[in-house]
Design a protein around this nucleic acid. Structure first.
Length: 423
DNA sequence: TCTGGGGTCCTAGGACCC
DNA sequence: TCTGGGGTCCTAGGACCC
């Protein structure tokens, strides 16, 4: 029984380094949209004490003064590098679950009898590194929750190969003792508080509680975690990819928005993007929600959060329908006199694109279904937007600040890295 | 001055049924 | 004045993840 968890080391920061060898050993941070928070740090930046998720403005001065290098996020590039890494992993194993942009679980049960899994891991790591430049770490263990712990052990034990397997009772026990309970996968801030009160501070203590008891005192999710820590597999490799249940497009604004005239076109842009994603998933939705909110951090200013859901009688993935619904949802929740900092749209209640369930009460005046129309627009907009809807803001997709983005090295002909340039 | 975005799962409680 | 028992479905909100 063995699974592996492969995770890319400081993924975004590592990506920025791939075509910039001059950044080797230089501290790097990557920022969220609007250059708001730090969302990735290279090892050197972590050593400097830059925390995950800290507001950039709080650490900017010190970080730059110490010679750090900063990047705005370049998700087009990271997404492409991620796909390359996953593609390689897929070639090695029969079962893979792409868990996030920088992590994948691998099912190794059928390989166990043919290979030494540790050597297998080292081999994979080497090839991923050689073919993409991305450094990965690999944790091997009987359950998903334990693979996470195996990964953490790489750091604690300072394992140079960055591959670690825990499989014997003794190895697992040793790892659990050294894992603080808040580092266990599935144990967040709230649960840590409760567990600490019950004198449970490390993973071994958690593993030794009766799972039934945990279920009664907490919930079934934590019960599964306990069983997984004991080596009982509760979570399997889910290779049944995607089938999303909701799609969200939301952004914080670079500058506060106070009037509907500015806000409406922004929300329309979100709606257009969300519906593109929906068509890409080959789904239709029958719920459209819009939210707006002020900044929770400007606590002297009046606060407002608005949220409204519109039901559609007939499931759709036609941008025109979604735009109408978005407008219907936005108008009643918007209030003048507030400085809005963020807005977003959420599509939900999906049905498969091919099934047609018409409402008994379908409005006969609703536009006729014409999927070809959206298909043509998608084709025209594949690489850059050429066709806009009238209610969109065509000048800026969302009013964002973002000044330090690296080139789209691998996805744009105009931004390819140049080799052999004189230094 | 400046604080991300996109997801999942579970549960309690309300609405409704007979 | 007195007002059952058992069930399903849905949703908002909480907690967690990266």
């Amino acid at each position: 029984m063995a699974l592996a968890l492969v995770d890319c080391e400081s993924f975004y920061a590592s990506c920025e380094r791939i075509f910039r060898p001059d950044l080797k050993n230089i501290p790097i941070v990557v920022l969220s949209n609007n250059d708001g928070c730090v969302i990735a740090r290279s090892t050197e930046a972590k050593k400097m004490g830059i925390g995950m998720g800290v507001p950039w403005f709080k650490v900017k001065k010190d970080f730059l003064a110490m010679g750090g290098q900063v990047f705005s996020s370049n998700f087009t590039f990271y997404g492409d590098m991620s796909a390359r890494v996953m593609n390689i992993l897929e070639g090695f194993v029969p079962e893979i679950e792409i868990y996030s942009i920088d992590e994948a679980f691998l099912g190794l049960d059928s390989l166990e009898e043919h290979y030494n899994l540790y050597d297998f891991g080292c081999h994979m790591r080497g090839l991923v590194r050689q073919w993409t430049g991305v450094p990965v770490r690999i944790g091997i263990a009987p359950t998903k929750t334990l693979t996470k712990i195996a990964l953490n052990e790489i750091k604690r034990l300072n394992i140079p190969t960055k591959v670690h397997q825990i499989s014997t009772r003794q190895e697992i026990r040793e790892a659990l003792i050294n894992t603080p309970v808040h580092e266990v996968w599935g144990v967040g801030r709230r649960l840590t508080e409760h567990l600490n009160k019950a004198k449970i501070t490390n993973a071994l203590q958690l593993a030794e509680v009766d799972p039934q008891h945990i279920k009664r005192k907490f919930n079934i999710v934590l019960e599964r975690t306990v069983r997984e820590l004991r080596g009982q597999r509760c979570l399997n490799i889910e290779d049944n990819i995607s089938a999303k249940k909701q799609i969200v497009v939301s952004r914080s604004f670079g500058a506060r928005v106070t009037d509907l005239k500015t806000l409406r076109p922004i929300v329309s842009n979100f709606a257009v993007r969300a519906t593109e994603k929906l068509r890409h998933e080959k789904q239709k939705c029958s719920q459209v929600s819009v939210f707006v909110r002020t900044s929770p951090f400007s606590d002297q200013k009046p606060q407002h959060r608005g949220y409204k859901t519109i039901e559609l009688f007939t499931p759709t993935n036609d941008t025109r329908d979604i735009l109408i619904a978005a407008k219907k949802a936005l108008f009643p929740i918007f209030r003048s006199g507030y400085d809005y900092a963020k807005a977003g749209i959420l599509l939900s209640r999906f049905t498969n694109e091919t099934t047609k369930q018409y409402s008994l009460f379908k409005d006969p005046n609703e536009p006729k279904e014409n999927s070809k129309f959206m298909e043509y627009i998608d084709q025209l907009n594949t690489h850059e937007t050429q066709i806009y809807f009238a209610s969109q803001n065509t000048k800026s997709w969302s009013p964002m600040k973002q000044n330090m983005t690296s080139p789209k090295y691998t996805t744009s002909w105009y931004e390819l890295p140049i080799a052999n340039q004189t230094q």
